[in-house]
Amino acid sequence: MGNTRTERFTERHNRLASIAKALAHPARIAILEVLIRKGSCFCGDVVEEIPLSQATVSQHLKAMKSAGLIKGEIDGKFSCYCVDQSACQEAYGLLSNLFEEVRKCC
C-alpha cells in the first residue's frame, strides 16, 4: 500500500475517478456535447453555444483535457479542441463495467 490516497486504489479506480471528476459539472457535459456534434472547434465556438464566459469555458476545457477526454492544440491566440475518441471509449468501458456490476448486485 502506498502513502497517498490515490496509491491505495487500483489504476482502474483512479482512472475512473479522474474521468468522473472531469465530467462532474453540467457545463463540461454541454461542452463535450458541442465537441461531439461539431467534431472539433475553437474555444470561441464553444463559448457561442455555452452560456459562460470564455475564461470559464477555457477552465472547463483544461480540466477535460487534463483527464484526457479531449485533445487540444494552441495556435497563437486560438485553441482548437476535439474529443479524444479512444479516451471516451475507455471511459464508456469503465463506466459500463462498473454499472454492469450493479446489475449483478442485490
Rank of each mutant, 00 (worst) to 15 (best):
M1W: 09
N3E: 01
N3C: 14
N3I: 10
T4K: 13
R5E: 06
T6E: 11
E7S: 01
E7Q: 10
R8H: 06
R8N: 00
F9C: 10
T10D: 08
T10F: 02
R12G: 14
H13L: 10
N14G: 00
R15P: 00
L16W: 01
A17N: 06
S18T: 07
I19D: 00
A20Y: 12
A22H: 13
L23P: 03
A24V: 09
A24D: 15
P26A: 06
A27V: 03
R28G: 00
I29G: 00
A30C: 04
A30S: 15
L32G: 02
L32N: 06
E33S: 01
E33A: 00
E33T: 04
V34H: 06
L35H: 06
I36L: 03
I36M: 11
I36R: 06
K38E: 15
K38A: 14
S40H: 05
S40T: 10
C41M: 02
C41D: 08
C43P: 14
C43E: 10
G44E: 11
G44I: 07
G44F: 15
D45P: 04
V46F: 07
V47D: 01
V47T: 04
V47Y: 01
E48Y: 08
I50D: 00
L52E: 07
A55I: 14
T56V: 07
S58P: 04
S58Q: 06
Q59R: 14
Q59Y: 14
Q59W: 09
K62N: 05
M64K: 05
K65S: 03
S66T: 10
S66R: 06
S66H: 13
S66N: 11
A67H: 05
A67Q: 08
G68I: 09
G68S: 01
I70G: 05
I70Y: 09
K71H: 11
G72C: 01
G72N: 05
G72S: 05
G72F: 00
G72L: 00
E73N: 12
E73C: 10
E73S: 08
I74E: 04
I74R: 04
I74Q: 01
D75E: 07
K77D: 04
F78W: 08
F78D: 04
S79Y: 04
C80S: 12
C80K: 13
C80R: 07
Y81P: 03
V83T: 09
D84Q: 12
D84R: 03
D84L: 07
D84H: 12
A87S: 15
C88K: 03
Q89Y: 04
E90T: 09
Y92P: 12
Y92G: 13
Y92I: 03
G93A: 02
G93F: 01
S96N: 06
N97M: 11
F99I: 02
F99G: 10
F99R: 13
E100V: 06
E100N: 15
E101V: 14
C105V: 13
C106P: 08
